[in-house]
Design a protein around this nucleic acid. Sequence first.
DNA 1: CACCGGACTAGAATAGTATTCTAGTCGTGA
DNA 2: TCACGACTAGAATACTATTCTAGTCCGGTG
Lengths: 199, 199
Amino acid sequence: MSVAGGEPERRRAILDAALACFTVKGFSATTVDDIRIRSGASVGSIYHHFGGKERIAAALYIAGIRDYQEGILAVLREHRDARAGITALVGHHLRWIAEHPDLARFLLRRRETEVALASDGELREMNRALFEAIADWLRPHVAAGRVRSLPTDLYSALLIGPSQEFARHWLEGRTKSTIEQAERSLAEAAWAAVSVEGA
Amino acid sequence: MSVAGGEPERRRAILDAALACFTVKGFSATTVDDIRIRSGASVGSIYHHFGGKERIAAALYIAGIRDYQEGILAVLREHRDARAGITALVGHHLRWIAEHPDLARFLLRRRETEVALASDGELREMNRALFEAIADWLRPHVAAGRVRSLPTDLYSALLIGPSQEFARHWLEGRTKSTIEQAERSLAEAAWAAVSVEGA
DNA sequence: CACCGGACTAGAATAGTATTCTAGTCGTGA
DNA sequence: TCACGACTAGAATACTATTCTAGTCCGGTG
């Protein structure tokens, strides 16, 4: 009915507006109309690109996880030494969160979105693949006797669990320490948890 | 208009019904009507006791956190030895989750509720108090040189972070290990992370 | 150039839910 | 017996998500 058509950045604008609204008001409190106003798109446009509020959240969720996981995989590829790799892993985790605080807050708070996504299993598969990648990367170090042999599902808990927990509090503004200050201890803890010496 | 009045368990019935609905359909997908039907209460009753869907979730959230934290504090009171206390801490964390899986799932997924609650600060205060209690409990052990001296906000991350992360995956049915199997490693990791020897 | 089809956008119309309101009901105590 | 406070019902209301119909624009085709 007016203005120009065929803008490919419409989709992105909607995602950005949605994240901004979710950050300020939370998911359930933001209305589709909030997103419409902030993004400049129309209701029709929003429903064309996504298929509802929940779906917008899902798209944000998947995009965020994907970006994060790609970084992790890159870190693993770059390192061969066990301790250096694990330190870099923790570092990447914390740095990613510090660089994308709004997105990180959204990902950590709104895990419920997973329910809606569980059906198409895309996320499930991504998670599985990441776990596997970590386990594969660790395998030679386990064989060499520097890293403890543990069930696959424990590695991710031990390596990024502490950082995750710290980041969660940091994102809610509940920590006195900065991420930079915490990084060393968190990396050491991760190493201590899986290394053979530190038991 | 009918039936009896003055039932004090009406409130509880509503909470139970709400948790059941949230577990099955997720928060946003369950309607107040679902809760009404499942609990046997009327809309008016629900809004009398709470003040909306969000508030029901908030009440569940606070009640859950309170129960969990009281258990943690009890564990700390029961133990003097550093290592035994930390092992018990991790054990309680995991056991609580295993015993209240639905509630735990709700608490872990629906952190967004915190946003709504942040205003009245009750949760914030509860968290602060717990952190403080843990730091106080650790203090003599730090002085005795058995536990590392670290910023307060790092202790909780190091001690329960790994368990939290493992539990999250376990609750989503993504682990092969059982909680019992993981408990030992998680407790060891917690100890290794904060003990002076294991660095 | 006139026209077609597909991708996208508008905004009104519709349907579904949360929340509010008015009118009770019940037990308690004076 | 009556008045009162705590609680409950269910209809009425107000919002919001979602769907629908009617375009608009661009790129290609005869």
